[in-house]
Write a protein that binds this DNA or RNA. Structure first.
Lengths: 227, 227
DNA sequence: AAATGTATAATTGTCAACAATCATACTGTT
DNA sequence: AACAGTATGATTGTTGACAATTATACATTT
């Protein structure tokens, strides 16, 4: 052999998986706003793929809740509703409290280091006014906790939420040209996460999520005024 | 018009949806045991459908976690692991506690009636030794709570868990020829659910789930002994 | 005999044509 | 003019054929 073929390892090997990734990114980044109709023939030619794999990708994303499909009628980027945002934040609160209860007794050096590193990355992104990066790094910070729980079901559930959360952050950022978290919003979070007071951590999560909700609340009122 | 055409309302109108339903049922009822390889050509001819819709159905079920798909290799009914069962029960505890916190202040007559009715159905199924029906009715009982929360995200998450839970119950029943819940196991549950003591209800859920886990624990040890 | 390489068969991935359904614009009727 | 009915076009659903990949069995080499 001449060279190692790393493609199977580094790249998604099926067109379907590529399409899922690309579509998900496009939605999350706001390139395909909520409500956009996704016409199969257009999308398939745009992505250079036939309709077969595209349709399979659509099934996956529909199951993830990022798009809505109505048989014989069409596929649409999932609409944002006030209820959906509220539900996301209340559910996320429960999920993350559960995550901390699980992770608390098995926190180790790796957990400490990753959390600290991720906080630095987030701070840097905020300071640099790198809005898109800021959204990503904030989600990555919370992801550290879920990753260390050793609870696959919780992890999967979090991943499903993460996509929609990312979308809300992006839309909010686009609408107001300012990103979500303020500079010190996560300092106390990490401090408590590495401390000894679990009840205090759980309380802070409730508070943290409410603050997060406050920030996207302007998005909520805009949606409400559209009716 | 001669007669109302109710087909579009009562029936899934796409082959894909039919296949999803049929495959899900077959897995949940234990007709396709965990680990079974699902060969597309075989399944499609068995179901009288071409491979297109079948593959789309596979994407949906894979996203729901009922089957595992390895590109270019094959699709398998998801294997049961000890970890998966433990995770399911711990996660379910959190989920149902959240559900009761949500529903508590908005319980009404409909909630009361449905819960009572469902308890009767469950009791009848148990008394009649209707094992398959018993599994269904027990899940339906818990479903009443989720239905009344008005929280779609929670509801969706519960539905995803429900399939796997149903499968575990079925496998346990098949292995030991006895069904899960004992005759009075849900009496206290419903009594507390209709009462005034939320903390007591939450505590009972923890206990209830632990009892449920005890019942399928024999399934766990069997799986473990297979290694 | 064990390990390596190769050919074959089985299976999955992809595609393009065809059928079924829906939405729109148009026509005709009251 | 408003409404119902109809025809047309666009879009989704379905199918069978073809390409790419993998796994198995077999042959070859050490």
């Amino acid at each position: 052999m001449t060279v190692l073929n790393l493609k199977p390892i580094l790249k998604n090997r099926t067109l379907r998986a590529d399409v899922v990734e690309k579509l998900k990114d496009a939605i999350i980044r706001g390139d395909l706003p909520p409500g956009t109709k996704l016409v199969e023939s257009q999308l398939s030619s745009l992505l250079g793929v036939s309709r077969g794999p595209l349709r399979e990708a659509i099934r996956q994303l529909a199951e993830q809740g990022l798009i809505d499909n109505i048989p014989y009628t069409g596929t649409y980027v999932a609409n944002i509703t006030v209820q959906a945002i509220r539900e996301l934040y209340s559910f996320r609160t429960e999920l993350e409290q559960f995550a901390f209860k699980l992770v608390w007794e098995q926190r180790d050096d790796a957990f400490h280091d990753e959390l600290t590193l991720q906080l630095e990355k987030l701070s840097l992104a905020i300071k640099s006014d790198a809005h898109i990066a800021t959204i990503f790094e904030e989600l990555e910070l919370h992801n550290v906790v879920y990753k260390h729980c050793g609870h696959e079901l919780l992890q999967d559930t979090w991943q499903r939420l993460r996509g929609r959360l990312h979308l809300y952050f992006t839309l909010h950022q686009k609408a107001h040209n300012r990103t979500g978290p303020y500079i010190n919003a996560h300092d106390k979070y990490v401090e408590l996460a590495l401390g000894d007071d679990l009840p205090a951590m759980l309380d802070h999560i409730t508070e943290h999520m409410q603050q997060g909700y406050q920030k996207v609340e302007s998005l909520v009122s805009e949606i409400e005024s559209q009716n």
